[in-house]
Nucleic acid binder design. Structure first.
Lengths: 269, 269
DNA sequence: CTTGACTCTCCCCTTGGGACAGCCTTTATA
DNA sequence: TATAAAGGCTGTCCCAAGGGGAGAGTCAAG
């Protein structure tokens, strides 16, 4: 019995392309090649080899490895070593892919959260904020210096961070250069270290507005929120907060037009 | 500030080869290319892009995908879809690799078992065999027909099989054509179905010899074992057993020289 | 000016898939 | 019956995502 390449391909479920390649690499040589037409013809013995090759391919051996194996060995027990090596490689790949999966998943979750938050975007609302434990680093300086503060906090409490970065503003008014700012992160636990205070941050009732866009345009949102507060004659408390829901991302440096910042002005009840 | 390709490679941990490729594909174009020497020079902006590319590469995006993403988007939220798709791909890979891992593992375990068995190879020994539950299919025919019997058993009890295939020989002598053979598998549980008897197979004391090599040479091992038995004036019982420790393998059809068959002749106490 | 460190381009390798041109056989139609 | 179309077969070239290496040109320090 002899089979043409198409038929043999159907028998073995190896593509014609692959069969030609295996021939070229002398991994699976047809039993007969027509001298004039170049047509490949296969026989039963080829089928046996093809089965072995298919299984080794499923086990992720490269063609070079497969060639070596079928040229030199003909029993499972003789390639135990190779099987063990291959298994280790595969375990490594699994571990790597699992890492990636977890990592992508966390980004996806974060973005979905943000999406939900955007739903009620641009609506001023009043709400209750719970008391939370924070690690805080107080500083005087320019608004643009807060990055440094977050750096200090992240270095000391990286693994305990439990929420979005925030700033507390202790000035009643806008100050260009010498603002009194406290950068902070919600944390799970921890205690004071040099310059960083870990404490409960009292909650309360606040007026909140989600600001979407670059930090430079925050002024506009502040104007809106104060209009609302003044219209109702609320008495505001200090400090006010900015919660940085979304800034530069993990993948992209980020498009400032998508930054999300929640402004919280606390009021007396 | 501008960096040569080597320096930039060190900064970004991207290989020089990769950088040249990314340039060619217009994924990461150097800020400046010397018109005469062709030297590539990079700047800070390139570093930002390089970071994004690195992360996407870690997440297993292809260069084509990366190019599309960085050309069209600049925020995580915009590529949520791609991230989800990629995550699904990765989950599939994990599943596939896990399958492979399990499969290779079972071969490894089997081979290791066999290796241990070979340790005390070729030594005739006397031992006790426990009673075991078997599914058995009795037939009359040639020795070479037993494959059919095992096929029937495997089809009906595939998932319950609990040990190596065996044959029970009810003839006291060698019979060429019309041997009375019972093919059987140890099973976990099950009950009689057409032609197949499920029952306890009584154990007892037996003389055992491991035969290594093709089935055609079993005669030699039988000679050895009967010499041993006759020398001691043991009374043998019927049926005798052959346990097929190792035959054709999962990967290789198998080298008959490595086949392992244990002959068990039961004796009266 | 020399030397050693860089950098350039070009080619080979992996494991097939896709496209394309040319040859052969089989089948359907005029 | 002659012819044409369909489909199978062949080979060749391009592509992914870089690593390895050759051979030649370039830069900067001594």
């Amino acid at each position: 019995m002899k089979y043409g390449i198409g038929e043999f391909s159907r028998i073995t479920s190896l593509s014609i392309k692959s069969l030609r390649l295996y021939h070229e690499k002398e991994i699976l040589v047809p039993s007969e090649v027509d001298q004039f037409t170049g047509y490949r013809y296969y026989n039963e013995m080829n089928i046996e080899f093809a089965k072995t090759i298919k299984i080794l391919k499923e086990y992720d051996f490269s063609l070079a490895e497969i060639k070596e194996i079928i040229d030199e060995f003909n029993d499972e027990s003789e390639i135990l070593e190779q099987l063990i090596k291959k298994k280790n490689e595969i375990e490594k790949k699994i571990a790597r892919y699992k890492d990636i999966s977890v990592s992508i998943d966390s980004i996806i979750k974060k973005e979905k959260e943000n999406k939900m938050r955007i739903e009620n975007e641009f609506e001023i609302e009043e709400k209750e904020i719970e008391t939370m434990l924070i690690a805080a680093y107080r500083m005087k300086g320019k608004y643009s210096d807060v990055g440094k503060g977050f750096g200090v906090l992240a270095k000391n409490f990286g693994s305990e961070i439990n929420g979005k970065a925030m700033c507390l503003y202790y000035d009643g008014e806008y100050k260009e250069d010498d603002a009194d700012i406290e950068t902070c992160f919600p944390v799970r636990k921890g205690k004071d270290v040099d310059g960083i205070s870990v404490r409960g941050l009292k909650g309360g009732r606040c007026v909140s507005l989600m600001h979407k866009g670059p930090y430079e345009l925050l002024g506009e949102s502040y104007r809106k929120i104060f209009n609302y507060i003044n219209a109702r004659n609320y008495n505001t408390l200090i400090p006010s907060r900015e919660v940085y829901i979304k800034g530069p991302g993990m993948i992209f440096k980020g498009n400032p037009n998508n930054y999300l910042t929640e402004i919280q002005i606390f009021i007396q009840r």
